[in-house]
Amino acid sequence: MKTLQQQLGNYGLYHRSKRNVLTHFFGIPLIVYAVLCLLARIYLPVADHVINGAHVFVLATVIYYLLLNVSLGLIMAVILVVMSIAAAPIASLSFTSWLAVSIGVFIFGWVLQFIGHYFEGKKPAFVDDLIGLIIGPLFVLVEALFLLGLYKQLEQQITDIAGPTKP
């Protein structure tokens, strides 16, 4: 498994334009939320409990993030749990409404992504490496933390791999 720095640095190669990163601040959370809305409708009986597909997705994703970095994994755990809780009301809608809202949010999130990559002049990272689909949310988190002046060493390590950001 690649290190956190390698994963984020590789993802960063496709995201040096500040306009592209800005569209990702909105597009990626919308996509993740839509996926959670879709998965929350899949119910799985486990012993005396019922879990849903969103729970499984969050658990698997958080484990991966924790393996990369404990503190970032914990932050992502909080964000993903809150998003999965927010997805529950959408999952409880009628089938048609649930599907329309979930797919609509998903498509809108991807439209924002592709607008960002138009500004960037590069294809999305996942085209070359599917792991980019799971690294994207973590990249958005660290970019937000960098704006707050946090994780400066990680920011420098990513810049060393991907190069400086452009306006």
Results as ranks from 00 to 15, higher is better:
154 L>A: 02
11 Y>P: 08
85 I>Q: 14
41 R>G: 15
29 P>C: 10
116 G>E: 13
93 L>P: 03
92 S>C: 04
53 G>R: 04
62 V>D: 13
153 Q>L: 10
132 G>K: 08
123 K>T: 12
151 Y>T: 02
9 G>P: 09
85 I>P: 10
69 N>K: 09
20 N>A: 13
158 I>Y: 01
37 C>W: 06
16 R>T: 14
37 C>I: 00
57 F>T: 02
90 I>C: 03
32 V>A: 07
73 G>I: 11
165 T>I: 14
116 G>Y: 10
21 V>T: 06
144 A>N: 02
62 V>Q: 12
148 L>F: 13
121 G>F: 09
6 Q>L: 12
166 K>P: 00
93 L>F: 13
27 G>W: 03
134 I>P: 01
158 I>V: 14
34 A>T: 02
33 Y>L: 15
5 Q>C: 03
121 G>A: 09
126 F>C: 05
133 L>R: 05
75 I>N: 01
145 L>W: 11
61 T>F: 09
151 Y>D: 14
87 A>F: 01
80 L>K: 04
95 F>A: 14
23 T>K: 01
98 W>H: 13
59 L>W: 14
35 V>Q: 00
71 S>D: 12
32 V>R: 05
149 G>Y: 06
135 I>D: 06
27 G>F: 03
97 S>R: 03
139 F>W: 12
155 E>F: 04
51 I>N: 02
106 F>Q: 10
98 W>T: 13
84 S>A: 15
148 L>C: 14
92 S>H: 12
106 F>P: 05
3 T>L: 04
79 I>D: 07
89 P>V: 01
161 I>Q: 10
141 L>K: 13
